[in-house]
Nucleic acid binder design. Structure first.
Lengths: 117, 117
DNA sequence: ATACCTGGTACAGAAAAAGATACTATTGGA
DNA sequence: TCCAATAGTATCTTTTTCTGTACCAGGTAT
């Protein structure tokens, strides 16, 4: 994709607010030390339980995992379902909105293939 | 793109390190309050001078702009060229590596079109 | 001489993010 | 009655990031 193609596409698709980068809010939604790794685990396997995620993301703390999951949930990227069994079971999975990030991740990975050794 | 397609593509292309999200380092490179907005301005217009960027990104401070540009430069996403005229002129532009992020930004914007009202 | 232009630096303080440690609620079972 | 398991909370400290303010350097115009 060239500059010019990009400008054309950007211009016609979403550049309604002059000067405000439309990519920023999306990347802000993915910011934080753990969110992307959580989404990645949920891309690979879904649903996953709290403790399962914690094991995969070791050495994450309860606090960090809880906070990240809450934010992802409030952005509607991740769904939380609680089963009131004993012991308690809570499962996390991607929402449709979350799954729709896959092409973004894939574009990033293609860039990574070229530039990360 | 579905889960399964993603897993297949990820698995074959880049998932050599088990459990480590390959998207994370790229997003980390874009983190920080100003970097994306700088890249975005340089997508729209390139090259741009220091003062010109400062005007576009107002109310950014000198410190913040300098730091962000230095990091982008050290990641080889942005190129700095200094012309020793008077008054001094310094121009910033995207490198090829930086321009190759355009498909990523475009994928993000397509997602944004669907989910950001 | 002095003030002004561009493109920065230096440094202190405020604010935000992350980490460490301890604790809670539910309830099934020994 | 007390312990274990899961899925968290609560609170404090440390670390990182961001901001505000002042200043510098080379050269030019007055």
């Amino acid at each position: 994709m060239t500059y010019e193609e990009f400008k054309q596409k950007v211009g016609s698709v979403i550049l309604t607010d002059q000067g405000n980068c439309p990519v920023t809010p999306v990347v802000q939604m993915l910011q934080g030390k753990w969110k992307l790794q959580i989404l990645y685990e949920l891309c690979i396997k879904s649903p996953m339980r709290f403790g399962e995620l914690k094991k995969m993301l070791k050495p994450i703390t309860n606090t960090a995992l809880t906070n990240a999951l809450k934010e992802l949930e409030s952005d509607d990227l991740v769904q939380r379902i609680q089963y009131n069994e004993m012991p308690l079971r809570v499962e996390y999975s991607l929402t449709q909105k979350g799954r729709d990030l896959l092409p973004v991740f894939y574009a990033i990975m293609q860039w990574g293939v070229k530039y990360i050794p």
